[in-house]
Design a protein around this nucleic acid. Structure first.
Lengths: 241, 241
DNA sequence: TGCCTTGCTTATCGAATGATAAGCAAGAAC
DNA sequence: GTTCTTGCTTATCATTCGATAAGCAAGGCA
C-alpha cells in the first residue's frame, strides 16, 4: 500500500515555497479575484485562506493592504488600455461605421471581465483618484476624438474652430453606454442573457451613425437656441421620501 | 452679556429627546446618505457621529445593522417604483416616441439621485437578492413591454405567437443604458457635464425609434440565420494579464 | 416644585480587522 | 548526510467592529 499523505486539513498541496516573484504574482491575482468578489473590505484573512497561505505572508510581499490594492488598480486600469484605439478612431481612410464597430468590439473584449468591471466600480464608489483619471482619459482619448470624427462625418466645423460641447459628448456617451451597461448587466446585476456582443455592437453603431447627422444638427440648434446659458443643473430634490 | 451656551464639543444643539417616530426617521435618512457615501461597510459609529447621536442609540431603534440596511433597501428600491409606467408604455393611442420619451423622462427623474444610484450599485455588488428582484421586475414590467410595443410598431408578430428573444431585449436595453449610464456618470464617476436630460432623452428616443424597424428586422434575421443554436457564451478568458 | 416616565449616553463586551515578531522547516549547496 | 539560507507559519499585537447593559437626565404631569 503506497504511503498516502494524510490529508492535512483540507486542500493545500499545490503550494509550498514558491519563488518570490511567482508568489507575489499569485497573491496579486488572488487579490484581484478576491476584491472583485467582496470589495476592498474583503478581509486579508479570507484572501489568504483562498490562496492556501497564511495571512501574515501577504505582508511579506506587500507592505500593507493599501499597497496591494494599488497594485490591483495598476493591473485593472493601466494595463488594460490600448494606445492604438485613438489612432484607429481617427483613421479617416476608413468609414466611420467601420472604425466605431471595430473599436467597440475590441474595447468590449478588453473590459468584459468580471474582475475588471467590478473592481472599476468598487474603486469609483470609493472616489479613488485613479478611477477619476481613467474617466478623464476616456473622455480625452476616446469620446472627444469620436465627437470630432462625427463632426467631420456630418459636415460640422472641426473642434479647433468650434469647441466641443458637453451635449455632443453625451450623444457619443449614449453609444458608449450600450457597451458598458451590457457588461455591467452581466457581471454586476447577473442579468445577462447569452448573446452575441459583436452583432449587437454592429447594430448599435449602425443606429448611432445613421442618426448622427440629425442628432448633431439638433444638438447645435439646441445649444444656439438656449443661448448657451450653460443649462442650469436640475433642482436637487432634498428629501428621498 | 447674554448667557452663551459653552460650545459643547462641536455641533449638536438641534437634537435632543425626539419623538420615537421622528428619531427613527432621522436615523433612516442619515443611514441612507451615510451608506450611499461609504457603502454598507461604513461603520455605525461614523453614522451616529454624523447624526449627532450616540452609536448605541441606533440599536434602540433598529435591532441590528442588517435590519437598518433592509429598511434602507425598502426606501431606495420599493418606494421608487411607479406602477403606472407599464400602463403608460402600452398606451397604443399615443405614438411610440411619445410614450418612450415621457416614460424615460419620468424614470430618469425618479432615480437620478445620488443615494439611489449608489445604494443600488452597492447592493448589486453584494449580490443582494433585492437587487436581483429589482432587475427581474425591470425586465418583466418595463423592458419586455417595450419590446412588445416595438414589435407592434415595426409590424412583427406579438410575443404571444413569437416569444421574445434576448437580443430584442438587449436592443431596448441599449436605450435604457443611455439613461442609466448618464446617471452613473454623474453620481458614481463624478464626470457629468451640466446638461439637459430631457433634451437628451428626446434625442436618444428619437434615434432609437427611427432605427427600430431595421434593428428588429435584422435581429430576427440574425436569430433565424444562426439557427437558434443559443449563441454559446464567449470563451471565458482565464488570466487577467 | 417635585416626581416619574423614557429617550439617551457612557462604559463595556467579544469578535474581527490590519499588521508585527519570533521561530520552524523546505530544499539547494556541499 | 549535514549545513545554511530563506520562504513560510504560528502566535500575538492594538484597533475597530457590531452589539449590550446600566445609569443619567430631559421634560410632561401633578
Amino acid at each position: 500500500m503506497p504511503e498516502i499523505r494524510a490529508q492535512e486539513g483540507s486542500k493545500k498541496p499545490p503550494s509550498r515555497r514558491l519563488a518570490p516573484d511567482a508568489r507575489a504574482q499569485q497573491i496579486l491575482e488572488g487579490a484581484i479575484s478576491h476584491f472583485a468578489e467582496y470589495g476592498f473590505d474583503g478581509g486579508t484573512r479570507a484572501l489568504a485562506a483562498h490562496l492556501g497561505i497564511s495571512q501574515a505572508l501577504l505582508f511579506r510581499y506587500f507592505p500593507n493592504k493599501a499597497a496591494l490594492i494599488d497594485r490591483v488598480y495598476e493591473v485593472v486600469f493601466l494595463n488594460r488600455w490600448n494606445p492604438e484605439w485613438k489612432a484607429l478612431l481617427m483613421r479617416r481612410d476608413l468609414p466611420l461605421t467601420t472604425r466605431l464597430t471595430s473599436f467597440y468590439k475590441d474595447y468590449n473584449r478588453s473590459i468584459d471581465r468580471y474582475e475588471v468591471i467590478r473592481i472599476s466600480l468598487f474603486s469609483a464608489l470609493r472616489n479613488e483618484s485613479i478611477s477619476q483619471r481613467y474617466v478623464a482619459r476616456l473622455r480625452e482619448q476616446l469620446i472627444a476624438p469620436i465627437v470630432a470624427e462625427c463632426r467631420a462625418f456630418v459636415g460640422l466645423p472641426a473642434p479647433v474652430s468650434l469647441p466641443l460641447h458637453p451635449l455632443e459628448e453625451e450623444l457619443v456617451l449614449g453609444l458608449h453606454a450600450t457597451v458598458i451597461y451590457g457588461i455591467m448587466r452581466k457581471h454586476v446585476f447577473h442579468a445577462a442573457p447569452p448573446t452575441d456582443p459583436d452583432f449587437m455592437i454592429e447594430l448599435q453603431v449602425e443606429g448611432f451613425v445613421r442618426f448622427a447627422s440629425e442628432a448633431f444638427q439638433r444638438v447645435h440648434a439646441h445649444v444656439l437656441k438656449s443661448g448657451e446659458r450653460a443649462g442650469q443643473p436640475p433642482p436637487h430634490v432634498a428629501s428621498i421620501s
